[in-house]
Computed example of a mutant assay.
Amino acid sequence: MSTPQIEQRANVEIYFDAAYDQQTSKSTSSLVCKGSGGRILASKSAFHSNVVSPFAAEAHAGLQAVRLRKQMGFTILHIISDSKTVLKKCQSFYRDSSIIRAFISYIQEIKSHFQEIQFQFIPRTENTCVDLIAKEALNKGEDFTWREGFQKPSEEKWSSYV
């Protein structure tokens, strides 16, 4: 494995956000994964049903962010979002008792698989790209995945967002 590939797998930033539709109890989680120099390595949106609240939608998006580790083999991860409460719960070592406890427990369990993992809050105005992807995916009702070097023709529309 060449040095740039090792760097990509070792130190990445994943931005996450969620969009929620209260009338249908559906949400989407969206992720944008950036490597060194801010290069986009991947983006993903996942559609979810039976979501109980916007808070649960954000927690589900956070879980999707740490799960990306398994798919892409990251060892050092920097997770960034505008969901301050979810990030604080992810950082905590205490057992969560809120409505999102299942998501938080799983995230806390996965944390041990990283060499290093950090959670960082950013204002919503700095997370607009990921927010836009989540809203668009919720409106369309579809998932998508894009990875550097691989793009299906049906996913070309998403490349303009990342």
Rank of each mutant, 00 (worst) to 15 (best):
T28F: 02
G149L: 09
I14S: 03
F16D: 00
V86F: 04
L138N: 05
K34R: 15
T145M: 09
H78E: 07
V12Q: 08
S98V: 05
E13Y: 08
I110R: 06
I79M: 02
A46N: 14
K140L: 12
S112I: 11
Q120V: 14
K152F: 06
Y20L: 05
E156M: 05
F16M: 09
T145D: 02
F119E: 00
F114C: 01
F93T: 13
E136W: 02
E156Q: 09
Q71I: 06
D82G: 11
Y161N: 01
N50V: 14
A19F: 03
K34C: 05
S49R: 15
K26V: 11
N127L: 03
V162R: 07
Q120I: 13
L132N: 09
N127K: 01
F55L: 15
S2Q: 11
A42I: 06
F121R: 02
F93N: 12
D96A: 04
Q115T: 15
E58L: 08
Q115C: 12
S159M: 08
V51Q: 05
A59G: 06
R39H: 15
W146L: 06
R101L: 08
F144G: 00
I122R: 11
Q71M: 11
H48D: 11
N11P: 02
I14T: 00
A134G: 09
A19T: 14
F144C: 08
L77A: 07
D21N: 15
D143M: 01
T75D: 02
L87F: 01
D131H: 13
E116M: 09
Q91K: 15
S83Q: 03
I117W: 00
S81A: 13
A10F: 10
S105D: 14
S43D: 08
E58T: 03
K157I: 12
T85L: 13
F74W: 10
G35I: 02
E136T: 15
E142N: 08
A46H: 03
S154T: 03
S112E: 11
Q91L: 12
A65W: 01
